[in-house]
Design a protein around this nucleic acid. Structure first.
Ligand SMILES: [Mn+2]
Ligand SMILES: [Mn+2]
Ligand SMILES: [Zn+2]
Ligand SMILES: [Zn+2]
Lengths: 130, 130
DNA sequence: TCAACAGGTTAGAATAATTCTAAACTAGAT
DNA sequence: ATCTAGTTTAGAATTATTCTAACCTGTTGA
């Protein structure tokens, strides 16, 4: 079981629930999802897991770097399986996020970071509409 | 009363509450604030206004373009009196936003907008920490 | 001028995403 | 097999925001 190994690599006990979630979301494909949508997927798969556990697990996954958390527009937190540095299109009609490879964006000018601070990442959001 | 004129310009009835808020936030200085922080300011000024009204007014102000709404990190909505196109530093230590003039950022490369869509704005967020 | 009404305000209830509580369970070590 | 720290869970709590529905007020035009 590959997923168990991955969890162990991140010092996470491979519990039934974490394995279930990891199989669901860490399958190599990049996804954006919410806690609720994941629960629906799991339930419609005939399996079950509490929402509290999903939040516990997803937050844990984020804290070890298995997921990224994206807070944006409105009130639901979106999780992102693409933990490498990248940017997003935001489809304003649907709320859907689409990854943008960092190589597709180049800067010719950037502001100086305020004194006493250091940069902790630059995120570009390109809002699009039909 | 300048504020009344401004409200009228935006087809907003200059009610007591809107005038109070407009004086508080549309004083020419660029600010980022939440509904709660505005209420605290108003109350500590000896005046009073309900939170529902603050939300009603701020949302109205946003819908006519007097304010911008910024949803970011967590659950409180931040309003921005700078309605012109600009970017932000996000102080990760405090959650504070700092405006970045669009002239301070230049792009040497941007991705092509997906077919059937058009760009509706590019927002850069530079996360900083001490 | 002022009645009429569309639009605005408000307290408090409702909603909804997320976190907390505290009791039951389990993975992994010895 | 036993122990323990870590995990899961149902349901309660929290909290930002919106809704409800009754009351109020700015504006207008007779
Ligand atoms: Mn909102
Ligand atoms: Mn959160
Ligand atoms: Zn992404
Ligand atoms: Zn700003």
């Amino acid at each position: 079981m590959n997923v168990v190994k991955k969890l162990r690599n991140f010092n996470l006990r491979p519990t039934k629930q974490r394995i279930l979630l990891a199989k669901q979301i860490l399958d190599g494909k990049n996804k954006h999802f919410t806690a609720e949508t994941i629960q629906k997927e799991v339930l419609s798969n005939g399996q079950s897991i509490s929402l509290a556990t999903i939040y516990n697990c997803l937050n844990k996954f984020v804290s070890v770097g298995l997921l990224k958390q994206i807070d944006q527009q409105g009130e639901v937190t979106i999780f992102d399986t693409n933990v490498s540095h990248h940017h997003h299109f935001l489809n304003q009609n649907t709320g859907e996020l689409i990854d943008i490879d960092p190589h597709e964006i180049g800067f010719s000018k950037l502001p100086k970071i305020p004194n006493g601070f250091e940069s902790d990442g630059v995120e570009v959001l390109i809002k699009i509409k039909e």
